Simulated scan of single mutants.
Amino acid sequence: MASKTSADIIRDGLWNNNPALVQVLGLCPLLAVTSTVVNALGLGLATLMVLMGSNLAVSLIRNFVSESVRLPAFVMIIASFVTCAELLMQAFTYELYQILGIFIPLIVTNCAILGRADAFASKNAPGPALLDGAMMGLGFLLVLVTLGGLRELVGQGTLFADMQLLFGPAAARWVIRPFEHYPDMLFMVLPPGAFMGLGLLIALKNAIDTHLQEKRKAVATQEPVTSGSKRVRVTGHVS
């Protein structure tokens, strides 16, 4: 099997094989914590860190771990990085850590992380494995933030509220209120709104993919038009 190029890895992580929109993995935290942008961003950054660290570590030890203990070793590596992420959040973003609660330790059981460790990192060199973890984590992060922004805007009429929980007191001024006297839509803040929002994002991606595929087919089936002109040289004698 031919190894993937860096461009392929980037496209897969961000779009073609996005863990949330295509693989549909990690839905428990995705649907639970995306009521606001700050919650989604906090969990997304933690997941990104764990994915990059675990992919790199798994790739480094791939030739030294026997098949019988491969998966337990991967889980231990992932759990170690999750513990690091948890301790960092407790130290620097304690209030956000309390809001996210159990969903930080549950990163250990995120199928997207274990799946990338087993399917890619254990079969590739550290460089591609690290890039794959970064792109898969970034793709998951972008979906989290997009869904969080959608739910926060429709549900509460704000964007980037409580960003001081992640970036400090100066970020309290980042909040955007596009609507005056917005009536809160509780439906979008609750779990049914998360399901509906994710469904809309998946539908949008599928529509874009279909449009691009039809466009490529149209270009491929279009016969090339070649036009040539013959130059006629007229010669004459002037008497």
Rank of each mutant, 00 (worst) to 15 (best):
S6W: 11
S227W: 08
Y182M: 05
S59E: 07
L56F: 14
L200Q: 03
T36A: 08
N63K: 13
M196T: 12
L21K: 01
T93W: 02
V24S: 00
G26E: 12
G193E: 02
R62G: 05
P126L: 02
S239A: 11
F81W: 12
L204I: 12
L41E: 02
L48Q: 11
E180V: 08
F140Y: 12
S122H: 05
D184L: 06
L131I: 10
S35G: 14
G157M: 00
F120C: 07
P178D: 09
A207Y: 08
F74N: 12
Q90I: 11
G133S: 05
T34I: 04
T109L: 06
L153F: 05
I107F: 03
L130E: 05
T34N: 14
L204G: 15
Y182C: 00
T5R: 05
S35K: 06
G236D: 10
S35D: 13
A85S: 14
F74M: 15
L200V: 10
T34G: 13
P191E: 07
S80W: 15
K205I: 00
W15T: 02
L212D: 09
L21D: 01
L21Y: 02
F195I: 08
P128K: 11
I77H: 06
I202A: 04
V50M: 04
I208W: 15
S80I: 09
P128Q: 12
A170Q: 13
M135D: 03
E214K: 09
L141T: 14
L31D: 10
L165I: 03
E180Q: 08
T158M: 03
P72S: 08
T93P: 05
A73W: 03
M1G: 13
C28K: 07
S80A: 15
L88D: 04
M76R: 00
L14E: 03
R233S: 11
N17A: 13
M52Y: 00
I202P: 02
G42R: 03
Q213T: 15
M52K: 04
L166H: 07
C84L: 14
I113H: 08
L201H: 06
H237K: 13
I78T: 14
V232N: 07
E86A: 14
G199L: 06
L71W: 10
R216E: 15
I61T: 14
E214G: 02
G53I: 05
F74A: 07
A32S: 14
V219T: 09
A40S: 08
P224H: 05
K215L: 09
V82I: 11
A57F: 08
P29N: 09
L141N: 04
L106P: 01
L131F: 08
K217A: 08
P183A: 05
P191C: 04
L106M: 10
L25S: 12
N18Q: 04
R116N: 14
P29K: 11
